[in-house]
């Protein structure tokens, strides 16, 4: 049914009416003064002193969000695969451990997980491995620019690492479930055939089970990575300078609440929409 029905018109009209109402509330009652013109400079602005275009704080935040998302996705995939395999292990203790980890992360709100992890673990880890000093050395070193491409401002490296770790741990639980479901969808006969050839467990997984499970794993995994991008906003709570954190800062300094948050919403929305388009195309490609 591609034809537009009278009901569609009515729904559209109702929506417009509602939008109009919200608009008049903001315009009239709140007496909000729109200042859209100040937003672009926080994305990209021309630096007179250096004579070149530089990223504004929103753009920097977006870049950090992308860095965190990409790195956390990779880490979550690695951890999740281990977790998924552990959930299907023969050894009971391994299975129980994996189950416990999963249930803990699944049943505690992500914000609570983040705070617990940040205050109890992350600080200790960073101190123990002297990541602070190590990052500062790099920031002063010659190849600092290369590190900055991947990790942003190296002076903020420890906080970025905490953000990535927290996010990856949290998402690995869900990735693990996706991998487990994929592995368990492979018929038993496949595994028995591999075993009857005398293949060790590792080869059975690598050559028989995982290649077949891939088809079932990839689509939900793509979804999960989009969820991860959205969830990455919570790392702003532990003062990682991501898009959300920068927006909060922008709002408190300019008071352009609506403009800043609408811009950020559009950026997140656009990013995730692009990702879903990309995954859909990749999926179509792999079907052929």
């Amino acid at each position: 049914m591609r034809k537009i029905h009278w009901l569609d018109w009515m729904i559209l009209a109702l929506l417009l009416l509602f939008a109009g109402y919200v608009w008049t509330r903001i315009e009239g009652t709140l007496n909000y003064k729109w200042r859209w013109e100040i937003i672009p400079q926080y994305l990209l602005h021309y630096d007179q002193d250096q004579g070149r275009w530089t990223a504004g704080i929103l753009m920097e935040g977006l870049l950090n969000t992308i860095r965190i998302s990409v790195l956390a996705s990779i880490l979550a995939l690695v951890l999740g695969t281990i977790l998924g395999l552990a959930r299907c292990a023969q050894n009971l203790a391994v299975r129980m451990l994996a189950r416990t980890y999963l249930e803990l992360l699944r049943n505690i709100p992500s914000i609570v997980v983040i705070f617990i992890f940040y205050f109890f673990l992350s600080e200790q880890l960073i101190a123990a491995f002297n990541i602070d000093g190590w990052a500062r050395d790099i920031a002063r070193g010659e190849n600092a620019w290369l590190w900055q491409v991947f990790f942003g401002d190296m002076r903020r490296f420890p906080s970025l690492v905490s953000g990535i770790l927290v996010l990856a741990l949290f998402e690995s639980a869900f990735v693990g479930e996706i991998i487990r479901a994929g592995i368990q969808s492979i018929p038993r006969g496949q595994r028995e055939a591999a075993q009857s050839l005398g293949l060790p467990w590792r080869d059975e997984m690598r050559f028989v089970v995982l290649p077949q499970a891939m088809h079932k794993i990839v689509p939900p995994l793509a979804n999960q990575s989009i969820t991860l991008v959205k969830n990455s906003a919570i790392v702003s709570l532990i003062s990682v300078h991501d898009l959300t954190y920068r927006t909060l800062a922008l709002v408190s300094s300019t008071r352009a609440i609506f403009e800043a948050w609408i811009t950020t919403a559009l950026i997140y929305g656009g990013l995730c929409f692009l990702l879903s388009l990309l995954f859909r195309r990749l999926e179509k490609g792999s079907d052929r």
Partner: peptide
């Protein structure tokens, strides 16, 4: 060696 009812080829 084992041959199964459902072949179980990869």
């Amino acid at each position: 060696g084992m041959v199964f009812q459902q072949f179980n080829l990869f």
